[in-house]
Every structure is written in structure tokens, then in C-alpha cells.
Design a protein around this nucleic acid. Structure first.
Lengths: 148, 148
DNA sequence: GATAACTGCAACCGTTGTGGTTACATTTTG
DNA sequence: CAAAATGTAACCACAACGGTTGCAGTTATC
């Protein structure tokens, strides 16, 4: 378990905002669904706001809503808004330049790791929040049908 | 920076073992190149041994060597030997089943995250330790040539 | 204008993982 | 036996995470 659950929480929240995009949701409502804490939710949504994915309004009847259509927000957008820096960490400190391998390793690894990250980012970028809402609605439809 | 630098250290060590595979290397020699500590190196190489990537011999003149040809060891092998569990963490605890989104999110996210991880793993699996040794040797050759 | 319902934010807390280190038992070679 | 190596356990400082309390600021409603 390397990457924190912040991205999962963010995607969950974004999906809720997209599912009920006729109104705005409060951090308390989202926290209820997550079985978590309003402050935690506001922290994460705050990062999403900085990234331009959501907007918030203060005061009574305030809350959160999407800043743009759910079809234009990918899972990678959420990930990138929360996780900074490279996914795969290189050496904790520069290796020895006296060693034939040491003086080349950092540079070579950087290329490999960057490509690996890009592969993951590309995959996350293929799914949008709108896709998830569609899947949620489809699941609920199936569930209702099976109840007969 | 989400994934620890253990994988980077492991790949560095494996590349050294492959570069000088006529002899065995000690944890102290590898630690020198990493500017790190022999105990740390033994810890990480210990995991690689469990994964069947390297072998060690105790006692005087002991040390470490590859358990199989460097062309058959990929960067993903090293990564998998050290990092356990999913890369992308899902919810810290199960969301509310009362929420239409909550009761579907975990299952949907698991698919997305697993696919993203697989994309990264696939990329890491394309490069072998032998590839890195070749690149190190090529760099050194260029460097020597440029010295004229 | 007071009150209620929100966001925004700072300050903590306990837990976990990381990188690093010391110390020591064990194994093997010279 | 002595030297050189692995194998481990124990510990430390640090950072991040998930969570929580408390409170200031903002806004709609009565």
C-alpha cells in the first residue's frame, strides 16, 4: 500500500458530486457516505479546488459542486491533484560517483520510472467521473431488477 | 513520492551484481556504491533472496550473486519482491452502504486501480537488469571516448 | 440583527513505514 | 584461533496519514 487513500476519497467525492449535480453537497454529506470526517473531506476537496476540479460556496446552504462536466474529469486528474512528486522514489541520496554503476544509475532509473508512471497515468486518464456515475447507475438498476 | 526507495536500491544492487557477475559482492561493497549502510543492503537483498533473485553465502569470502541470468530479471521482479499489497490504496474503511455511490465505489475503484497498476507493472517488466548493464557500459564507453 | 449552517484552517494525536545505526550471534575461510 | 562475512534484533528520528477538536469567517434565513 504505497499511495495514500486520498485519491480514492477524492474520486468517491467527485462521483457523488456528479451523481447529484443538480444541487451542491456539503462536506458532512460526503463524509457520511465515506464514513469519515467533514474536515478530512474539506481538506481533500480543497486540493481539488486548487486543481480547478470543484468549486465551493461558503455560508449557509453552501457546499461543493463540480467545476466542469464530469465527462471531462479523469481519475488521473484527481490523482494528480493530490499526489505530488514522482510515484517511484529514486535513491534516498546520490550514489557514489566512484562506482561505474553508481554514477549512471540515477539517470537510467529516472527514465524507467518516469515511463512506468506515465503508463499508469495514461490508464487512469482513460476513465472519467462520468463513466463511474454511469456504472453506479447501471449497478443500481441491476440491483432493483434483481429484487423482483 | 509514494513508493519507497527500496526498489531503486534493489535495482542498483542487482545491476552491480550483474555487472561483476564473475565474482560475488559483499553488502559493504554495494553499500559503498549506494553511500549507504551494509545492514540496509542486506535487508533489501534478503527480500530479493526470498523472491529467488539472488543467492548469498555466509562466512569469509561470502557475499551475494544473481540467482539467474540478468536477462531474466526485470525491474518489475525487483519491485514485486519489495513492495507488497496494492499500489493505489482504496478507502481506509468501507463506505456507507446506505449511499447509492458508497455501496458501489469500492468495487468499481478496485477494477480501475488494478488496471492502472497492471499498466505500470507491464512497463517495468519490459526492462531487464541486463538492459541496464548494457546502458551502463555504453555510457562508460561514451565517457571514455569523450575524454580524448 | 440574531441565529443556524456552512467553509476554512490551524493545531494536535496515535500509528505506521522509512532510512539509518549499533550490537551481536553465526558461519566460513585462511 | 582470528578475520571476514551474513543474519537479525533492537532501537532512533522523521515524515506522512487518517482522524479529531476547536474556532474564525461567511452567508442565508428567521
Amino acid at each position: 500500500m504505497a499511495v495514500s487513500s486520498k485519491s480514492a476519497v477524492a474520486i468517491h467525492a467527485l462521483t457523488m458530486l456528479a451523481r447529484w449535480d443538480d444541487k451542491s453537497l456539503t462536506s458532512a454529506e460526503i463524509a457520511d457516505s465515506l464514513r469519515s470526517n467533514p474536515v478530512l473531506v474539506r481538506r481533500i476537496l480543497g486540493s481539488l479546488r486548487v486543481a480547478g476540479l470543484v468549486v465551493s460556496t461558503e455560508g449557509r446552504n453552501g457546499g461543493w459542486s463540480l467545476a466542469r462536466p464530469a465527462g471531462g474529469i479523469t481519475l488521473h486528474d484527481a490523482y494528480a491533484a493530490l499526489e505530488e512528486g514522482p510515484l517511484l522514489a529514486s535513491h534516498p541520496h546520490p550514489p557514489s560517483a566512484e562506482c561505474e554503476v553508481g554514477r549512471n544509475m540515477e539517470r537510467l532509473l529516472e527514465v524507467e520510472f518516469r515511463d512506468a508512471e506515465r503508463a499508469m497515468a495514461e490508464r487512469l486518464g482513460r476513465t472519467t467521473i462520468a463513466d463511474l456515475v454511469r456504472q453506479v447507475l447501471a449497478s443500481e438498476r441491476d440491483l432493483a431488477q434483481r429484487a423482483h
